[in-house]
Design a protein around this nucleic acid. Structure first.
Lengths: 249, 249
DNA sequence: CGGCGAGTTGAAGAGCTTCAAGCCTGGTGG
DNA sequence: CCACCAGGCTTGAAGCTCTTCAACTCGCCG
């Protein structure tokens, strides 16, 4: 099952037929491993293969000459089918593994054929793109107009939900293998301040932490404080098959 | 020429054959006008038509319950072919006209057929998506890790370049019909501070302003101060036709 | 047992916001 | 033709959030 994580993710919002699942599994693809801290994609690199994360956490990021780093998004299993590959562009940002990562690598042509061959799968893959773009937009709103407290709470709630979709989280808690420095780089803050806010959440009885594990003690109140509304996840499913129909015709 | 702006934009990075241009023009599409300040797309709206801006400036934006607004991106002529439409999703953000806007409206099926029918056009349209996603990413880095001064300069340089691509700007200046409040909402700042920084740029001889016109007096120095590197525009052109080939097969 | 990466805490200060008020410009109506 | 109004721009002063600098602690692995 080289793309089990992708199949699981797609299954959360659409029904894949056995035939579709078979097509995905038949893709084959090469398995690759990345160790904690290593680069999966380097900024400026010519993209000629397509990657799907199977296991582990990674981040898209960009660094200024003076060393300031901004994390663009966190990548979980089932994610990272990148449009940039489809036009053979150079990557404008890097991707790094924050834990050990297992991924499956495809040739872009394999995906092209998939898109041309199944309406449902085409839609499903466009949906993954729509969702990732939505995460980027939410990141802009969060970092642009929310306070440090709101940002950190909002991020925790988003990652918890995404971890659930990837089958990596329970009802009220999850393992978050990101250092406070990485969290700060996601949110445009300093690690020091990130630390203070997290401790504040604990003091206020909103969360509990044990090593990398985060437990929500009052999920609803936290969601209210942070204005967390997961509508941007676009989980409502597909409503039209416009592109798929055309691709099949 | 209902899609002249789109054709112009695509021509900046790839060569469209006469046949391709004819196909684009044959799309027809319905012309729509929006007055300054009106909504083009409302957050939560079910998307069932596809829009290309022909003339005027607009913004993607999202507003929190308490009124704080964040602008996600600025849209110029030739832009806004939105993946969300292709899967019939509800929009997770609004789009508003900041000047009077003229746009062309298509049915998603028209674009589907286009994608299935021409490799070059498919690639060209994917490229527009790649570029828009790159603008979002750059927005995250800018707002997350740059100072107010850097952000404002960087934004001015980006918009100038994009205005050039849309044939709306000269070598060293352009008309920027955004109020300082909108600029502040793009950059996650207050209009007051935005004003102070702009005046500071004038005092330092970096720019001159006359009503909505911005002139760069020392473009290179400003670009250096703001770490502006337009690599993220992805203007280097297309290197592979993987998707297009498949779509044509 | 020593060292390293990550987390924690304190104190001082910078950058940006908030509140408040005045000004300028273009458009409107008497 | 000009008074007036509204929206946007400008400036000042005070204050808060977050950063910066510095030091110490904790847990883990060799």
């Amino acid at each position: 099952m080289p793309v089990a994580a992708l199949i699981r993710r797609l299954g959360h919002y659409t029904h894949l037929s056995h035939a579709d699942v078979d097509k995905l599994n038949a893709l084959g693809g090469r398995e690759r491993h990345f160790t904690r801290g290593s680069d999966i994609i380097t900024a400026g690199q010519q993209l000629n293969e397509l990657l799907v994360i199977e296991e582990g956490w990674s981040i898209r990021h960009k660094t200024l000459e003076d060393g300031r780093r901004q994390v663009l998004n966190v990548l979980l299993p089932g994610e990272i089918f990148d449009l940039q590959v489809m036009i053979g562009a150079k990557s404008d940002h890097g991707v790094s593994a924050v834990t050990d990562v297992r991924a499956t690598v495809f040739a872009p042509q394999q995906i092209s054929h998939l898109l041309a061959g199944s309406g449902t799968l085409s839609m499903a893959l466009w949906w993954t793109q729509v969702q990732e773009e939505a995460f980027l937009r939410e990141q802009i709103v969060r970092n642009g107009r929310q306070s440090a407290r709101e940002r950190i709470g909002h991020l925790l709630l988003e990652l918890h939900r995404r971890a659930q979709i990837a089958n990596m989280a329970g009802e009220n808690g999850f393992r978050l293998p990101l250092t406070q420095t990485v969290i700060a780089d996601i949110l445009g803050l300093t690690p020091i301040h990130t630390n203070r806010v997290l401790r504040g959440f604990e003091r206020d009885g909103l969360i509990e932490r044990d090593r990398s594990y985060i437990a929500f003690k009052d999920h609803d109140r936290l969601a209210e404080i942070c204005h967390f509304d997961p509508a941007y996840f676009h989980m409502e499913g597909i409503h039209r098959l416009s592109f798929g129909e055309a691709a099949m015709s």
